[in-house]
Design a protein around this nucleic acid. Sequence first.
DNA 1: GTTAGCACTCAACTCACTCGAGTGCTAATC
DNA 2: GATTAGCACTCGAGTGAGTTGAGTGCTAAC
Lengths: 343, 343
Amino acid sequence: MDRIDRKYRILQAIIDDYILTALPVGSRTISRKYEQKLSSATIRNEMSDLEELGYLDSPHTSAGRVPSYKAYRLYVDQMLRPEPLSVEETAFIRSCFDTRIHQVEDLSSRMAKALSSVTHYTAAVMTRNPRAEQRLSHLQLVPVSDRRCLLILVTLGGAVRQHILDLDAPVAQEELYTVSRVLSKQLEGCPLSQLSERLTQLAAGAPQDVRGVMRALAQDTPPDEQDDISALAVGGRSNLLSFPEYSDVDKAKSLLRVLETKEKIISLLSQHGEMEFSVRIGPETGMEETKDCSIVTASYRLSDGRVNTIGLIGPTRMQYGKVLSVLSQVGQSLGELLEEKNG
Amino acid sequence: MDRIDRKYRILQAIIDDYILTALPVGSRTISRKYEQKLSSATIRNEMSDLEELGYLDSPHTSAGRVPSYKAYRLYVDQMLRPEPLSVEETAFIRSCFDTRIHQVEDLSSRMAKALSSVTHYTAAVMTRNPRAEQRLSHLQLVPVSDRRCLLILVTLGGAVRQHILDLDAPVAQEELYTVSRVLSKQLEGCPLSQLSERLTQLAAGAPQDVRGVMRALAQDTPPDEQDDISALAVGGRSNLLSFPEYSDVDKAKSLLRVLETKEKIISLLSQHGEMEFSVRIGPETGMEETKDCSIVTASYRLSDGRVNTIGLIGPTRMQYGKVLSVLSQVGQSLGELLEEKNG
DNA sequence: GTTAGCACTCAACTCACTCGAGTGCTAATC
DNA sequence: GATTAGCACTCGAGTGAGTTGAGTGCTAAC
């Protein structure tokens, strides 16, 4: 048992060192820096075993060893010690949630910026509105031009969605107000997913003069299916260029291209399962361009039913401990923010 | 006179070639590809003159020559031939304006994506609301939660701004509607810059029960000064990595960092003067990180008084002709879109 | 004024060489 | 039986000499 224990201690040391330096780790390094009681020859023997077990790869005969994907998986599952954050780091994260938010959007992009600058990885923040759970609180039509108006939907949780509507014929401002008021009353609590249906019903029975507006509403509402994502922001893309694994511009380019494509980012973040945290390593990210990356995501349910997903993307030799600590601090701060908001 | 003409024809050939290849241009290349009647020795003499005039630099004795900043300036001012776009390119640009827009934002980000993919440079699109010119059309308060409501300002041009308001005490929904209706009538046409002032006046004379709301409005409206930017999007950052001038990761990083900082992008786009197009080369961009870049910007005044500024950023050896053609095509399509919208 | 010709320059490439960090194996040691 | 010292071996990275080729500048001839 002791033997096995030692093997994994050595593996852990190798991973730790590799995460720090990005250089293949040799037996002497381990013997000097981590296991001073053992000679390099002993370490060599153990490393040879670990390679056979599939935890280590050697780029070539005389280059030291590099952790395999399997090693990272083990590391994350079994060996992870959460790395405590410095006082400054904690304070910095808190400060991002501190100010009362008066801009409608922008929390995501502020968070993305903050997280990327704390971790030195790339951060993506997404807020999703699970449509099934959203129920209408109010509805308001605001005239914008002659034949256009802005439809504002406020959900029971306080989330706001807007949508521009084209009208067949000009409609008086006063009329829009009336329709808004009536509909708000009739539709309060209606799940967004059934909105279109209900509106069609109501349009049929509506007085002649507002039937046009009602029909436009029924046709155009709700914002189409994918409109689920209410905010998406990415920060610190350029951080990736600091890692030696991306000193090759072509590799960097293919990854950055992914991080510029909304759909791909969403797909990366959406793989998040039911757990609070998820760590996907290399091939587990399920995308060719990110097969040498890891993605750590965290998901928080907001009080209004929206779901906030945060992802940190970096090379597979990521500082998993630190990243998880940061994310859990974010979760805590976010929780406090929500409490305060409701209190 | 003919002599001088020839000199500049040669300079133009050098610039054209360098823009294409990014490689220092030698006398033989010019003699073979551009001026077949002249021997390389003659070209050499001319190039020597051009270097003395400050239009060419030589990286070292045996490496051909590279246009200087001064050469690009001359090129843009005097030699520029607009490069006609291919049918596909024109069609592609038009198609971006084709679909009727139903998302409230997103036109900028769609444009940024399209422009970067047509030009292979990085595109930034910004929509600015010159506050002085904005006048109120409607104002609407929508309850969001107990003590919060959403203030929606619609300007005469049809632009929409929103802002979340904290209330001292809970206010009934019906009351918010009443206040909205009354204020909309009283404030119609009021310049946004005077809104706060006018609201303070009105609050003083308002009935007791709505004075709280009015005061909150006066205090919090209008969105603070910098809130001028109503949309900002950047596309095709990763395009830059394809240029040999950024095969050095450190150079790429410092530039990409700029292109991730909202404030810096805004500052780059805001240097745009009164003209429709502006070309800023190298040091003229006024930023250390972009001293080897050029920025071509175009500004379009939208019908509602907003100003749309588009910038394309690339290495100084930019395809200025093509970029300007693209931008003028965009201007045309945008014009058509606006006409249609108003018609 | 133009050009052919030639000496010269210099980055980029190749090739042989060395260096050093690493490994694996074996035999001695604890 | 586990550990370690020792040694032969491997291989990338770095070094330096030599070669190549694209380029220049200058001069003399056309």
